[in-house]
């Protein structure tokens, strides 16, 4: 039995870490202030999914990695300049919103349409990858809905590790409560895998990979389909930054012993 898969990684974009985020109201709903100026990265969990997909594809000859991403085209182009150097993939681009105010259901719907349109896709050999949450919407819902839309009923969330056995059975390690991992064995593809951080470091930038990817990335961006206008019944009543500021007592010159004593008293709840 051939163990060659179509590994489809769904990934949005997120603001580069450490950026200051500020919501604002627009006629079409909430948005991030200066969104176009905020440097963006591939959503961190989805990026882990991509690196894991690449790692898997290398082990399973004949496998191919697709990156399906919905974001504003200009932002997507920018992120691709860095990302394309990391691992080989074929981009399927959707020109649409990538901020956290988009409904997971609508995002899943766009992704499903784009995936269904991949020529020659054999869903029985599909590994559907994504992040278990996004760093923007933080809903943790898109991948499950997408899985359902594509008829994938073996779904796993918070995955840190995957192994494909010679029989085609798929072993997965999912994060569960208490810092533990539940280990499952699924008979065969298709499966949906919502990745936590995985176990792989970020790959180095490889100029040859970049050159190869760019041959498909720019055409994919050029023919990116625009996402349908939002028809969501999701309404934001309020979007705010947490304003709570604590009165911080700063102890500058307290001796170590006194700090330790105070901490122990506090820890013990006395």
């Amino acid at each position: 039995m051939s163990n060659a898969y179509s590994i489809i990684v769904c990934a949005g974009l997120a603001p580069d870490p450490l950026q200051r985020l500020e919501p604002m109201d627009t006629p079409t709903g909430p948005a991030l202030k200066n969104e176009m100026m905020l440097p963006a990265v591939l959503d961190p969990w989805a990026a882990c999914a991509l690196y894991e997909a690449d790692n898997l594809a290398k082990k399973l000859p004949g496998s191919k990695v697709y990156l399906v991403s919905m974001a504003l085209k200009t932002k997507l182009q920018q992120v691709m300049m860095v990302l394309s150097q990391k691992v080989p993939f074929e981009l399927v681009a959707i020109d649409g919103p990538s901020n956290g105010f988009t409904d997971a259901r609508e995002c899943a719907s766009e992704l499903a349409q784009a995936i269904e349109a991949i020529p020659g896709l054999d869903k029985d050999k599909m590994l559907l990858f994504g992040g278990w949450e996004s760093a923007t919407r933080a809903a943790g819902a898109t991948m499950q809905i997408l899985g359902e839309k594509l008829g994938v009923v073996d779904q796993f969330q918070g995955v840190d590790k995957i192994e494909i056995e010679p029989s085609g059975a798929i072993k997965l390690w999912e994060r569960v409560e208490g810092g533990k991992q539940q280990v499952s064995l699924c008979e065969s593809a298709p499966v949906m895998v919502g990745w936590a951080t995985g176990e792989l470091p970020e790959p180095p930038n490889n100029p040859q990979v970049g050159m190869a990817n760019m041959r498909t990335v720019m055409p994919a961006l050029q023919k990116a389909k625009s996402a349908a206008a939002s028809s969501s019944a999701l309404k934001f009543k309020g979007v705010t930054l947490p304003a709570q500021v604590r009165e911080t007592r700063i102890e500058k010159d307290m001796p170590v012993e006194a700090i330790a004593q105070e901490l122990v008293t506090w820890i013990r709840g006395n």
Binding site: P15, L21, P23, P30, G100, F101, A135, T136, R137, A138, A233, L234, K235, F236, K237, G238, V239, T240, L241, P242
Partner: peptide, 13 residues
């Protein structure tokens, strides 16, 4: 939203 940075109150019909 945004990793506990923005708090949203939402409603759906």
């Amino acid at each position: 939203l945004y990793r506990q940075r923005i708090e949203a109150v939402i409603t759906r019909a």
